[in-house]
Simulated scan of single mutants.
Amino acid sequence: MVDLPSPQTPLYNHPLPVLERWLAELGGRQRGHHSCEWDLTTVAWSAELVLGSEELTVRWGQAAAAVERHFPYGLTRADVEAAILAGP
């Protein structure tokens, strides 16, 4: 298994299997074996994460109460992780 790159590495320098491992290490659950959709739940909130072609989309909550943010793959893994774990 390949180690994760430095936390200061932009997401676009992470191969897809490494991104998937990172999301799993955060506590995410992939919706299907080859799905780009993930669910992440903490005691304080739950979120849906989508690995899109140009950005990672995170949607906390549901429907009208949802907060959605888009993180371009040019951001570092550390910055994106901090933003995701900070919650909505």
Rank of each mutant, 00 (worst) to 15 (best):
R31L: 10
E48P: 07
S46W: 00
E54S: 14
P15S: 03
W22C: 06
E54Q: 10
E48M: 07
L23A: 09
M1H: 09
V18K: 01
G32I: 10
P7F: 12
A24G: 10
L51M: 13
G28F: 09
A47M: 02
T9A: 07
E48A: 08
A44M: 05
E37H: 14
V50G: 00
H34R: 14
L26P: 04
L51K: 09
V18L: 11
W45A: 15
N13A: 11
V18R: 07
P17Y: 08
G27D: 00
R21I: 07
W22S: 03
R29W: 04
E25V: 07
C36H: 12
L23K: 03
H14I: 04
R29V: 15
T9V: 08
P7M: 14
E55A: 13
T9W: 08
D39H: 13
L4T: 00
A47V: 01
V50N: 12
W45Y: 12
W45R: 08
A44L: 07
S6P: 03
L56A: 00
L23Y: 09
T42I: 05
E55D: 08
E55V: 06
Q8S: 14
R21Q: 03
L40K: 10
T41S: 07
N13Y: 13
L23W: 10
W38A: 06
L19V: 05
L19G: 00
T42S: 15
P7S: 13
T57F: 00
Q30I: 02
V50P: 01
T41H: 04
Y12N: 13
C36Q: 14
L11N: 06
T42C: 08
D3G: 09
Y12S: 11
V50L: 11
G32R: 09
D39G: 05
C36K: 13
E55G: 07
L49R: 08
R59N: 00
D39S: 15
L40D: 05
H34P: 01
H14C: 08
W38C: 00
E20D: 12
L19A: 06
G27I: 00
L40P: 09
L16C: 04
V18H: 04
G28C: 12
P5I: 06
V58R: 02
A47L: 03
L26V: 07
H33W: 11
S6I: 01
N13F: 12
S46E: 05
M1F: 14
Q30S: 02
D39K: 12
R29S: 14
W45F: 13
T41Y: 03
V2P: 10
M1A: 06
T57H: 03
T9P: 09
V50T: 07
D3K: 09
T57E: 14
Q8D: 15
Q8T: 12
S35C: 01
E54D: 11
R21F: 00
D3Y: 05
V2A: 11
V50H: 09
T41P: 02
L4G: 01
S6M: 03
E25C: 05
W22F: 04
A47I: 01
V43L: 11
V58N: 02
R29F: 01
